[in-house]
Design a protein around this nucleic acid. Structure first.
Lengths: 339, 339
DNA sequence: CTGAAAGCGCTTACAG
DNA sequence: CTGAAAGCGCTTACAG
């Protein structure tokens, strides 16, 4: 089907009546070329629709001007949480203001090695990791040969100095929990994220520490904690379990807005009014925290800023600059109707 | 920070005691090498953690073994609709069974040219397009120099033979609408998607044609049609407008499950029971059609199959095979509680 | 089966 | 300011 004779630097140079060297110089914006050469080369480029061959350029420059964010193959589940798309958008918008191209690399489940080889083959100048399927050890190796910035804190601190950009999850949970305390709640339950990941654990720890500081902790065995997986359905199920315990509570901190929206429906179905009977506070400021009635009091994680900071850190790393190993994104309480 | 001395083919060959040619042959699985050479080269590769340089390989092969799906920079809005993530997942899973790597290329809004140059520079062997910001004309040009498969039908048929993989949207709407008719609805309203795109128009046309065929069309001026933008909030707003008209209806076809979930809440708030007072049918079988009560009767578009077929078509194109210009993905009605 | 050589399409010192 | 030349790291006819 395609016959388009791909233009080459040589062709451009010939048409412009200059050498390849000169043609290359005007293409790369070198100052050491005459105005006339510039005009003639540009005319030739336009006429031939010339676009420099990336492979050749990358080979000689040892640079691709490309960075990749690695995402899991189960994109449907991954993007069901608006959080990730928001990080990516922040990263993309920042990247587009630079001369790097951001690409999302889909990690093959069947062949994780494929992705690693790709990353190690010099296809990109650096990588952004948001969630890691593969063992941290594998990524350790990766970050030895390639600049890498993590958007999540690895569970097992393997002691290598990874560069990470993240939010203080415990502080976010504390902020949301304190809000409930401040409005007078004395019996505060929580729905956590998966406790197999640091974010879930840290948020639970933040909730607990805040209750302790307020002297609101009773018998640990009676702690009102249910675990979810960040989906609305899991939030609803957790709320059902909480109610089924028969222990009354007047405040509920839910570790994500997605789960909170599910939990809210359940509370209302059970005839509980929010915030009157139960006040709810959560984390994540997105459509899940504004599409409900009442809207949710939440902690804005400045998620798109996180994406931008990840790219910023990665480009610094690529440029060989010495940067902090940890970058913390500021958070902020947003007060709305639910608490 | 990184000092990792990148291994090269030359190093591998030297360590294995063979020529670069032989080393290259074993790497590429050539049959014309002795068992011994294979072993020694593989040992050297393992020892040096060697990974072939992509740029060099691409340059000589004139192939990258990479394909890209172009997605808009506004990833948050894009992925809010689970539809796209599902297409991508289907594409990714299919791709991972091949030796192509699928990448999501984020189109820069500020500099759309950047993306095009990237695509034309030989960075990938082909491209998948799901939604097009840029004018169709630009993509016309692109598909002249690069195999391209579209996942959406361009609005303005510019007369070039694009390769597209899509679903029959009018048929899907007809299926959903007929379901309402079959269950006895006689006054059927609809909430459409944006009528600026073919999918939105085709679904509206399918709804209308089905009503006509059933002799259920009254005064066109009284047609119960409201437009949404596929978000739950827009579905809710459209439902409010529909109710505000004061014209009773007993059936509602909503062009997407996302909008249907929003519309459903509104109907219930107004004291209408579904499906008793108003039966609802929709399109898209995802969490939005199962997280509601009742669950939604819907048309499954086999969206992940669509992603797989897009990749399949693209690879065929890349391989130089002659393929159909249009591939239609089969659809299927899924009966649930709402209609 | 194996190696020396050419070449993929660029960029960039090096002379001039 | 410009051009000839070397070289980026591979693959692949071409001889042997």
């Amino acid at each position: 089907m395609r016959v388009a004779p791909v233009a080459t630097l040589e062709g451009v140079a010939a048409l412009a009546g200059v050498s390849k060297s000169t043609a290359s110089r005007v293409i790369n914006g070198s100052p050491r070329v005459t105005e006339q050469a510039i005009m003639r080369v540009n005319a030739a480029i336009a006429q031939l629709h010339y676009v420099p061959n990336r492979a050749a350029r990358n080979l000689v420059r040892r640079r691709t001007q490309m960075i990749a964010m690695v995402i899991p193959e189960r994109t449907a589940a991954f993007f069901a949480d608006p959080y990730f798309a928001e990080v990516i958008q922040g990263a993309a918008m920042y990247a587009s203001s630079t001369d790097y191209t951001l690409t999302l690399l889909i990690e093959s489940e069947a062949d994780a090695e494929k992705t690693h080889r790709f990353l190690q083959s010099g296809s990109v100048d650096g990588a952004l990791l948001l969630s890691h399927h593969s063992s941290s050890a594998t990524y350790l190796e990766l970050s030895r040969s390639l600049p890498v910035v993590f958007g999540v804190r690895p569970l097992d601190d393997i002691g290598f100095e990874a560069h990470t950009v993240d939010v203080d999850n415990a502080a976010a949970a504390a902020l949301a929990t304190q809000r409930l305390i401040d409005r007078g709640c004395t019996r505060i339950a929580t729905i956590t994220g998966p406790l197999t990941a640091t974010a879930g654990r840290d948020r639970l720890a933040g909730w607990r520490a805040t209750l302790e500081a307020a002297g609101l902790v009773g018998d640990p065995a009676l702690e009102l904690v249910e675990e979810g997986d960040y989906t609305p359905a899991s939030g609803a199920a957790a709320a059902e379990r909480l109610l089924a315990r028969g222990v009354p509570f007047d405040g509920l901190f839910v570790a994500s807005a997605q789960m909170a929206s599910g939990a809210l429906s359940v509370l209302r179905e059970h005839g509980l009014s929010v915030p009157h009977d139960v006040a709810i506070s959560t984390i994540d400021n997105n459509s899940f925290s504004t599409d409900t009635k009442p809207q949710l009091t939440t902690v804005d994680l400045h998620t798109s800023d996180k994406g931008a900071e990840m790219v910023k850190a990665l480009l610094a790393l690529i440029a060989g600059e010495a940067i902090e190993h940890e970058t913390w994104i500021p958070i902020e309480l947003v007060e709305r109707g639910s608490a």
